[in-house]
Design a protein around this nucleic acid. Structure first.
Lengths: 135, 135
DNA sequence: AAACATTACTTGCAATATGCAAGTAATTAT
DNA sequence: ATAATTACTTGCATATTGCAAGTAATGTTT
């Protein structure tokens, strides 16, 4: 979306300039749950992102060092995407969004289970999951 | 922005449907720092939101019970906006965004000071600040 | 009391972004 | 050799954004 033009020097604003649209955090969400995704994997998500939007978001997120491309072990046509450290570091944000949403929306069962774990030991959960994604 | 149409039953997606655009969280940020703002106060923010966009976001946030209108004590032309409980409950999200941004952007001094306090006792900070905003 | 200033919006319109359907190039499978 | 996958790109209609200007209700000044 945006061409790295900062609207102000506010950290919230700076952050939104990178991933503050309706789609970017969903891509990041998919990568946090799946660790690695192909283009086709993203398209399978319930929200039904359009292919052109997906391509433009992947490019922007890559330019902003939130995600990176990898060679797929099985094929040269396939591309694997995964989170960088910068992307993984967004986990606390995603978790707090989940915890907020839990108060105000009905939550699917698998997410409830995850949040139960989170509540037992938030720092521990983040550390373990981040390590998993870095691997 | 959106007319309450949910794209999926994912809590992240549901959340973004409400405040997942480039402006809504900035409005919420202003209200977290200032507790109460007039229309004109929002316009003063560094990001320079357009008046029509501000009006549409305020309306959407109100419809979604994130903010509410109050009578201004000084005048009938002025309107005060403030966060509801639902809006205040986003504080952990805003804080985690700040903490993430701190790692990847230069941060203004006043925010640095705030984050220092946050790091001393995150839960305590949120509790105290939330209470302040509820008052 | 008339004139001017504030405040919170609304309106019109050009520019940009989104969403949908279809197309393409490089592999990979049959 | 032919067909299928995969990761995109392109064209175009629709929706959203951003800018400038306008307006209605109140408040202030002379």
């Amino acid at each position: 979306m945006n061409k790295t033009k900062k609207r102000s020097d506010c950290p919230i604003s700076n952050s939104l300039d990178i991933w503050g649209d309706k789609w970017s955090l969903l891509i990041i969400r998919d990568l946090m749950f799946a660790k690695e995704c192909t283009y086709g994997d993203f398209l399978k998500a319930d929200e039904r992102i359009a292919t052109n939007i997906l391509a433009s978001r992947l490019q922007a997120l890559e330019e902003n060092k939130m995600i990176e491309k990898l060679d797929h072990p099985d094929s040269k046509v396939k591309v694997l995407y995964r989170l960088t450290k910068k992307g993984i570091d967004l986990m606390p944000v995603l978790i707090e969004i989940h915890l907020w949403a839990e108060k105000y929306f009905p939550i699917p069962e698998d997410r409830k289970a995850m949040l139960k774990e989170v509540k037992k030991d938030k720092a521990g959960f983040i550390k373990a999951k981040s390590k998993e994604l870095m691997g």
